[in-house]
């Protein structure tokens, strides 16, 4: 607990400045997180973006992002019900989900390799990964 000596009134600015130990810890954690991020970036393939849709451990479908104007609609059966996913040239988005929070729907459109849409209650993961292999028309279960 704070002792009386430590409880001398300080301004918010002074409190936010932190101690040398706080700054050291922040520098260490920042370094570790940035290194982990760089390592992860190296692990991701940087080929053409491919959308993979999972329910838990099961891979439901793989689609490359279309180069033309067509929009692919995929219905993924999750733990709560069906989720509707739209894949277009602009990216991938969750159009409908049976969860209460609708955060996956509100997260909008994603197009970069490494982006993900996760619906935890419905256990659906939509992941954009790089794939250097030849382009597919789509594989669905």
């Amino acid at each position: 607990m704070l002792t009386d000596a430590q409880s001398e009134l300080q301004s918010l600015g002074t409190c936010l400045r932190g101690t040398p130990l706080d700054r050291l810890l922040l520098a260490g954690l920042l370094g570790a997180v940035i290194l982990a991020w760089l390592w992860i970036d190296q692990q991701l393939n940087h080929g053409d973006p491919v959308v993979r849709i999972y329910h838990g451990q099961r891979l439901l479908a793989i689609y490359p992002l279309p180069r033309d104007t067509r929009v692919i609609h995929f219905r993924a059966k999750g733990s709560l019900g069906e989720a509707e996913i739209a894949i277009s040239r602009e990216g991938v988005r969750m159009l409908h989900a049976p969860c209460n929070s609708q955060r996956c729907v509100r997260s909008g459109i994603h197009h970069r390799i490494g982006d993900m849409i996760i619906c935890v209650p419905n256990r659906i993961l939509v992941s954009i990964e790089g794939d250097a292999r030849p382009r597919l028309d789509g594989i669905a279960e």
């Binding site: 936010l16 982990a36 992860i40 990964e129």
Partner: peptide, 29 residues
């Protein structure tokens, strides 16, 4: 428990950076 795909950890570093920023501010407050 839920998604069971290890590559969701790929999203962790940017969120950890945000957590460090809010952790610092919350600690000061």
């Amino acid at each position: 428990l839920f998604i069971q795909q290890p590559h969701i950890y790929f999203m962790l570093p940017p969120l950890l950076l945000l957590a460090l920023a809010t952790g610092w501010i919350n600690g000061g407050i």
